[in-house]
């Protein structure tokens, strides 16, 4: 049994590692592609291509836009969803099943349909809205909804929000005081989880941005890869690392508070 398990783990490791290694060699070894043989594994590694991309003003613009979108999407998610999830949990727990279903809807409607529908509505009424790159924020909030809502909902449930709410009510606290002083400080884990998930989705989202003709990090990367395949691959790996880093920081922040992502509902 133990042998089988070891073999299985090795195969699984190779399944993930080999493509990553291939990507890394393609991106960072300045050796012509046809000569990327096993013998030349250690030759000509360099990150100069990547550094060159970092200096590209178009890249910098796209990155700044993406980071802004990320922050705005997280803020809007928390401002809208936290009170909503809290109210459902406390005042109308029977609606929880319905909310879970509703929050899944954005993933049932394909981005194309969503964008076409929204664009048709806004183009005639508030054309400036679609012109701004920030018009992506509401889409991203919706897109992250299945994950962010669940994380917050699980957080509320794990702290027994209903009892805490009622206890504070008897003491004379207003609903606003309860959310700010009692619920938020106790569900930092869930808030971090919801934020990290939203961030990861925003940094990787391509369809909405491409359909609305916005230049974000993913649309820039798709474009860039066509003209500079190897530097493009380097950039893709770097973004992958960055996203993993963000999730890692999130997990660490949770661990410090004695939680893991599971407890935060992920």
């Amino acid at each position: 049994m133990k042998v089988l398990r070891t073999i299985f783990l090795i195969l699984l490791g190779l399944y993930f590692f080999v493509p990553l290694l291939a990507m890394a060699r393609f991106a960072f070894q300045s050796v012509p592609v046809v000569l990327l043989t096993p013998e030349k594994l250690l030759e000509g590694w360099s990150i100069s291509g990547l550094i060159e991309v970092f200096g590209n003003p178009e890249f910098q613009r796209a990155t700044i836009v993406s980071l802004q979108l990320m922050v705005l999407a997280i803020v809007l998610t928390l401002v809208l969803l936290l009170p909503l999830a809290a109210l459902v949990e406390i005042r109308a727990p029977q609606l929880r099943t319905l909310m879970t279903a509703i929050t899944l809807l954005p993933w049932v409607v394909p981005p194309v349909a969503l964008v076409v529908g929204v664009a048709a509505t806004f183009r005639n009424t508030v054309p400036w809205f679609l012109a701004s790159p920030y018009s992506l924020v509401p889409f991203y909030v919706l897109w992250a909804l299945p994950f962010s809502y669940r994380a917050l909902d699980a957080g509320l449930r794990s702290i027994g929000a209903r009892t805490l709410y009622e206890a504070a009510r008897v003491m004379g606290a207003s609903t606003f005081t309860i959310i700010v002083r009692v619920l938020v400080p106790n569900m930092i884990g869930a808030i971090i989880a919801a934020s990290v998930l939203t961030a990861a989705l925003v940094l990787g989202e391509f369809a909405f941005a491409a359909l609305l003709l916005k230049e974000t990090l993913p649309t820039f990367m798709a474009e860039f890869q066509r003209s500079e395949p190897r530097a493009g691959m380097a950039l893709a790996l770097a973004v992958m690392l960055l996203t993993a880093l963000i999730i890692g920081i999130g997990v660490r922040a949770l661990r410090k508070r004695g939680m893991d992502l599971q407890a935060a509902g992920v």
Binding site: I159, G160, T163, L164, E166, A167, A168, N186
Partner: peptide
């Protein structure tokens, strides 16, 4: 309350 209701 029956459940622990202290603010953690």
């Amino acid at each position: 309350f029956q459940e622990y209701s202290l603010f953690p």
